[in-house]
């Protein structure tokens, strides 16, 4: 089974983001970038499936600028086999456009499993996996917390849904989006980081794909959220309970 893992380069989750003063977006210059944490879980899952003999080849796909090569290398160092970068330079990509690009790559690569994080921690859309599943007409198993391969080749996927866990059975090819509980991603070892440098990354220009990936949303402005003001320090437990009861009226 060939797995295509889609990864996004985002501002590292530990960075405190800053809204640009002209309100056009969020400051990304000189900010630490990393692989979207949910995508890291997707890479880890693919690598584990390969270690268990269920996946034969792992291809990492990222869509972005040249800098996304670095993110692909992270996946290669974790154990993926090769990478594909679809280059987009000026356009602000939205999930629908990203989904269309991934679908094109799928047509060329024919993966049996397309796996990615359930959402990216920058735009928080939670859409791309569902879009790819719809465009390819493959079944979708979103918010996965467990994957099990059945003897007939189908996959049982346990999904984290509100209030519990749902298990569905999907035929392959399929699209899986990963949730936190699925696994804990490994750190790449130094020898593997060195090895990853030799692995191949193919570059495709998005304009050569002839897709309509123009944005449908216009970002009018990006603002800081309403600020939370520091409150008061209370002297003891009774005072805390009294305030919660009578002032905040929440208990």
């Amino acid at each position: 089974m060939k797995a295509l893992v889609c990864v996004k380069r985002v501002i590292d989750y530990n960075v405190k983001i800053r809204v640009k003063s002209d309100k056009t977006g969020v400051e990304t210059d000189n900010v630490k970038m990393s692989m979207n944490p949910f995508d890291e879980i997707a890479v880890e899952e693919a690598v584990r499936l390969k270690e268990n003999g269920l996946v034969s080849e792992i291809v990492i796909l990222s869509i972005g600028q040249d800098s996304s090569q670095e993110t692909i290398r992270t996946g290669l160092a974790m154990g993926a086999d090769r990478g594909i970068l679809v280059k987009v330079d000026d356009i602000l990509l939205e999930p629908l456009g990203v989904g269309k690009i991934i679908k094109e790559v799928c047509e060329k690569e024919n993966p049996e499993m397309i796996i990615m994080g359930k959402q990216a921690i920058d735009d928080d859309c939670n859409q791309t996996g569902q879009i790819v599943a719809t465009l390819t007409n493959y079944p979708q198993a979103t918010f996965a917390s467990e994957l099990k391969k059945n003897e007939d080749g189908t996959l049982n996927v346990t999904r984290e849904v509100d209030g519990g866990l749902e298990t569905i059975k999907v035929k392959i090819p399929c699209v899986v989006t990963t949730d936190l509980r699925l696994n804990e991603p490994r750190y790449a070892s130094l020898p593997n980081i060195m090895k990853a440098k030799q692995k191949k990354i193919e570059t495709i220009e998005s304009k050569d794909l002839n897709l309509d990936i123009s944005p449908r949303l216009e970002v009018l402005e990006v603002n800081d959220p309403p600020e939370r003001k520091a409150g008061i320090k209370v002297p003891d437990v009774s005072n805390l309970v009294e305030k919660l009861k009578n002032e905040a009226k929440v208990i």
Partner: peptide, 12 residues
């Protein structure tokens, strides 16, 4: 966006 650390005003 960014887990609520910024608010984006968008027009569809």
């Amino acid at each position: 966006i960014y887990a609520g650390n910024a608010i984006s005003k968008v027009k569809s």
